[in-house]
Amino acid sequence: MEQIKIGIIGAGFIGKQHIEAVRRIPGLTVLALCDTNEKAGREIAQNLGIPEFYSDYHEMMKNPELVSIHNCTPTNMHFEINRAALEAGKHIYCEKPLTMTVEEATELIRLAKEKHVCTGVNFNYRNNVMVHEMKDRVCRQAIGKAFMVYGEYLQDWLLFDTDYDWRMNPETGGVSRAVADIGSHCFDTAQYVLGRRIKSVYANLIHLYPVRKKTEEAAGTFEKPGRNGRQYTEIAVPSEDAAFVMAEFEDGIQGLFFISQVSAGKKNGLALTVNGTEASLTWQQERADHLFIGERENGNDDIYASVQNVGSYAAPWIALPAGHSVGWADAFCNGITSFYGHIKKPELPFVHAGFEDGRQIMRVVDACIRSNAEKRWVTIES
Results as ranks from 00 to 15, higher is better:
211 V>E: 13
157 W>I: 02
184 S>N: 10
349 P>Y: 10
92 I>K: 04
56 D>K: 09
68 S>G: 12
336 I>T: 04
205 L>D: 09
266 K>L: 03
364 V>K: 05
29 T>D: 08
261 Q>M: 14
200 S>T: 09
125 Y>V: 07
363 R>T: 07
32 A>H: 00
258 F>M: 13
234 E>R: 11
319 A>W: 07
249 F>W: 06
129 V>F: 10
287 R>K: 12
163 D>K: 14
225 P>M: 10
263 S>R: 08
382 S>C: 03
68 S>Q: 06
113 K>V: 04
252 G>E: 08
95 E>L: 02
362 M>L: 13
51 P>C: 08
106 T>C: 06
275 N>P: 00
177 R>P: 02
202 Y>T: 00
339 F>H: 13
322 A>G: 12
149 V>D: 02
191 Q>C: 13
88 A>N: 11
228 N>K: 13
181 D>G: 01
348 L>V: 14
65 E>F: 00
104 E>D: 14
25 I>T: 11
268 N>S: 10
89 G>R: 08
151 G>H: 00
75 T>V: 15
230 R>F: 11
336 I>K: 03
365 V>G: 06
233 T>Y: 02
148 M>H: 10
117 V>Y: 04
38 E>A: 12
191 Q>G: 06
156 D>N: 14
71 N>H: 04
350 F>E: 07
174 G>L: 08
88 A>I: 10
196 R>F: 09
375 K>D: 13
78 H>P: 03
112 A>H: 12
209 Y>E: 05
58 H>R: 15
278 E>A: 15
80 E>R: 13
164 Y>V: 03
102 V>D: 07
135 K>E: 05
219 A>V: 00
215 T>E: 12
325 S>V: 15
190 A>L: 05
65 E>N: 14
345 K>Q: 14
267 K>M: 09
269 G>N: 15
323 G>I: 07
305 A>L: 00
136 D>A: 07
255 G>Y: 08
102 V>H: 03
31 L>W: 08
272 L>Y: 01
187 F>L: 05
135 K>G: 09
159 L>C: 03
253 I>G: 00
289 D>H: 02
117 V>C: 10
4 I>N: 01
66 L>G: 02
256 L>S: 13
94 C>F: 04
239 S>A: 14
145 K>A: 09
316 P>F: 12
113 K>I: 01
155 Q>K: 15
60 M>S: 12
341 G>S: 11
253 I>N: 06
218 A>P: 14
90 K>R: 15
335 G>C: 11
122 N>Y: 05
152 E>S: 15
305 A>S: 15
312 S>Y: 06
33 L>C: 02
139 C>Y: 00
265 G>C: 08
19 I>E: 11
135 K>P: 00
264 A>P: 01
76 N>L: 01
148 M>R: 12
288 A>I: 08
